[in-house]
């Protein structure tokens, strides 16, 4: 056994060298990859390419398509309704991404300092919003936010009857109300991500900090936050992509209304493509949404990537990242 292991090591090393030079591929390995690749290409890559192509045409899906150059894209950026929809997305980024990350960090930071009783139960229950279908979430929140729902009942009971309203039906409150639902969906996930990150931090770091007389805030800023860099990054990516697509929740609560007060790009994509028969515009908007998502995710990854020399000066960065999102929105 020892001999074979030693021998196994050597070809390994030389194959690594070969990889850098001209490569010796295993063409038969493509048989293993082919089925997965086929599904991915036919049902994801081809449709994306098609969307890009359609976005340069005016087309109702029935009669012949007319090439129109970039005019669908000009439409996306100049049409007031589209710009309004994009601005709604930015507002939702605050509620769906920034707020849950801040709440999650706050709770996880508190929990990092003590032994939590019943942690398994807390974990399981806090994760519940993540497993429910968005349609179920929409049905239950429609009840809660309804004119005679539990929220208004509570407000009346504490003497705030004057501010009660149909929260999802009011021009002024519909968008923040949907934002609040998004915060509810995401904060438990963020908290659990950060908790699992905290579990892998060396406890002796905390002991040392406390011996040096560091208070809870100092401890959080100089030990907990920097160590959670990968988790913060992944939490932002998950929540941001959820915020930008976000069709299901809006479709099943307000359908973009009242008026256009909760319309977001994905609602227009659906309506233009399947109800108004403006296929070119729907595709251009979908392409813009995709590029926007990739750019924002790219920025987050760059901002929070692991610095090679975990130098102390890099510690403030993660603390600022959620804040940056806030300012944008």
């Amino acid at each position: 056994m020892t001999v074979s292991r030693a021998e196994a090591k050597r070809p390994e090393a030389s194959s690594k060298r070969r990889r850098q030079g001209s490569s010796r591929y295993s063409w038969s390995s493509l048989f293993y990859v082919a089925p997965a690749l086929a599904f991915f290409i036919v049902f994801v890559i081809v449709p994306i390419v098609q969307s890009v192509r359609i976005s340069f045409y005016r087309w109702d899906g029935i009669t012949a398509a007319t090439p129109v150059g970039f005019s669908n894209y000009v439409e996306v950026f100049t049409n007031p309704a589209m710009r309004e929809a994009l601005s709604h997305s930015l507002v939702l980024l605050f509620f769906y991404a920034a707020l849950p990350v801040v709440i999650g960090l706050f709770l996880a930071g508190l929990m990092s300092r003590i032994r939590i009783y019943g942690l398994t139960w807390f974990r399981a229950l806090l994760f519940l919003p993540q497993i429910l279908s968005s349609v179920v979430v929409a049905v239950s929140w429609r009840d809660i936010l309804a004119i005679d729902g539990p929220l208004n009942e509570t407000l009346r009971a504490v003497g705030l009857g004057s501010i009660t309203r149909a929260w999802l039906g009011d021009f002024g409150t519909a968008l923040p109300a949907i934002g609040g639902i998004g915060t509810w969906v995401e904060y438990g996930l963020c908290m659990l991500l950060f908790l699992s990150g905290i579990a892998s931090i060396d406890r002796s770091l905390y002991e040392a900090a406390r011996l040096d007389g560091a208070g809870p805030i100092r401890e959080f800023v100089s030990i907990t936050l920097p160590s959670l860099r990968p988790q913060i990054s992944i939490a932002l990516i998950l929540t941001i992509t959820f915020a930008l697509r976000n069709f299901d929740l809006i479709w099943n609560t307000t359908q973009g209304g009242p008026g256009t007060s909760t319309a977001v790009p994905s609602v227009y994509i659906y309506q233009d493509a399947f109800q108004n028969r403006l296929l070119g515009e729907a595709s251009a908007l979908a392409v813009v949404l995709t590029v926007l998502t990739l750019v924002i995710v790219g920025i987050v990854q760059l901002a929070l990537r692991e610095s090679p020399d975990r130098a102390p000066r890099s510690t403030p960065e993660p603390a600022q990242a959620p804040g940056k999102e806030e300012r944008n929105s």
Binding site: P265, S266, T293
Partner: peptide, 23 residues
């Protein structure tokens, strides 16, 4: 392949639905 699939992980699949329907 891995690069394309990484894009697939964060993609808003709204961008695929119209061509998918037609296909």
């Amino acid at each position: 392949m891995l690069g394309a699939m990484l894009l697939g992980l964060v993609l808003p699949y709204e961008v695929t639905v119209l061509p998918l329907y037609q296909m």
